[in-house]
């Protein structure tokens, strides 16, 4: 009971904070709208854009600069060490594990998610009652990585083969005649793929929904014309459908890639990076907040940044093209 009262008062405080911020905004709006004449436009610009610009400078621009600076400093953040942290990342003996794993993640998880999402989108297009399937396949998007980790922990749970099995995967393996299933999460290097399956489980719904919309948006006269020209089946798919949804396909692939590059929660909850499953983002967390080596943590964050940059630049170029068309 006490907990409930406590909780309700927390929520009350949260709403009070919302009310206060909105009230302040309204007052500022009221005062600023009394400006007359030529000052009107500039004042409105500052009031509307100011908060966002300030938050972005404080929250993203300055931190990014500081982290970059920190990556050239030692663990305490006091002494300049040049490129030593980056040297450590790319040459220290144990580190090849998380580097290779991250590369595998970036390639395998987005490609498989997109491919499976595209397959489902095409199949759904030929189905009568698609909405239930769509909802259920899409559902994992709403589940946190931690929750997904627990859900899949049950699938990968290991028991001695002589005992009754608790993990679904082991049980299925035994039903299929493998009498001695491995302890999945310790099974190197395949445990990496088992972790990727969780990410794929989450992302396929996203790929499916977006690609399905793109396929439905292909004008039917295009399909009709291609059929008159004798294109069916695979030919139609590869020569008509794929080129028509190419832009969306790339957006889906890159969006999942960016999400995968920063992947942290799945690895942390499933294995905490042990048993050869470490990735850059979780190593960055471990260096910064467990080993308190700010220099190495920052350098790893910079590596993530350098990994995401080309993908975003590519997206910006695409966006500019579209805008110039419009």
């Amino acid at each position: 009971m006490e907990e409930l009262a406590n909780g309700l008062s927390k929520i009350g405080n949260a709403f009070a904070a919302v009310a206060i911020v909105l009230a302040i905004l309204l007052i500022v709006f009221f005062l600023a709208s009394r400006a007359k004449g030529r000052a009107q436009g500039p004042i409105a610009g500052v009031v509307f854009l100011g908060p966002a610009v300030l938050l972005l400078i404080y929250g993203l621009v300055v931190p990014a600069v500081r982290t970059t600076a920190g990556s050239f400093q030692d663990a305490s953040g006091k002494n300049f060490v040049g490129l030593a942290n980056f040297g450590w990342i790319f040459t220290a003996p144990g580190n090849s594990t998380f580097l290779i794993n991250t590369v595998l993640w970036i390639i395998i998880a987005p490609v498989l998610s997109t491919a499976l999402g595209l397959t489902l989108a095409l199949l759904l297009d030929r189905m009568k009652r698609e909405s239930i399937s769509k909802s259920l396949i899409f559902m994992p998007m709403a589940i946190s990585f931690v929750g997904a980790g627990i859900i899949w922990g049950l699938v990968y749970e290991y028991r001695d083969p002589a005992q009754p099995q608790v993990g679904l995967l082991s049980q299925v393996a035994m039903w299929l005649g493998f009498d001695n299933p491995p302890n999945w999460l310790l099974w190197q290097p395949f445990n990496n793929f088992l972790l990727m399956i969780i990410m794929i489980w989450i992302q396929v719904g996203f790929a499916m929904v977006v690609l399905s919309a793109a396929i439905k948006a292909i004008p039917s006269d295009v399909i009709e014309a291609s059929e008159l020209d004798g294109a069916t089946g695979w030919k139609q798919f590869s020569k008509v459908t794929i080129p028509m949804i190419r832009g969306t396909l790339i957006v889906v692939l890159t969006t999942i890639m960016i999400a995968v590059l920063k992947i942290f929660d799945i690895v942390r909850t499933m294995t905490n990076g042990n048993f050869g499953t470490q990735v850059v983002a979780n190593e960055m967390y471990a260096q910064s907040f467990v080993a308190f080596d700010v220099g190495r943590g920052s350098a790893l964050a910079v590596v993530l940044f350098l990994g995401v940059t080309p993908i975003i630049i590519y997206n910006v170029i695409q966006l500019r093209k579209e805008r110039s068309v419009r």
Binding site: L56, G59, P63, Y285, L304, I313
Partner: peptide
């Protein structure tokens, strides 16, 4: 320019901003 700058800020991974923000 501001619009594209804001869009491009997606490039900064969360991980990069955490430590400095915590210090702030």
């Amino acid at each position: 320019v501001i619009f594209f700058a804001i869009f491009a800020l997606q490039v900064v991974p969360l991980q990069m901003a955490l430590l400095p923000l915590l210090q702030m």
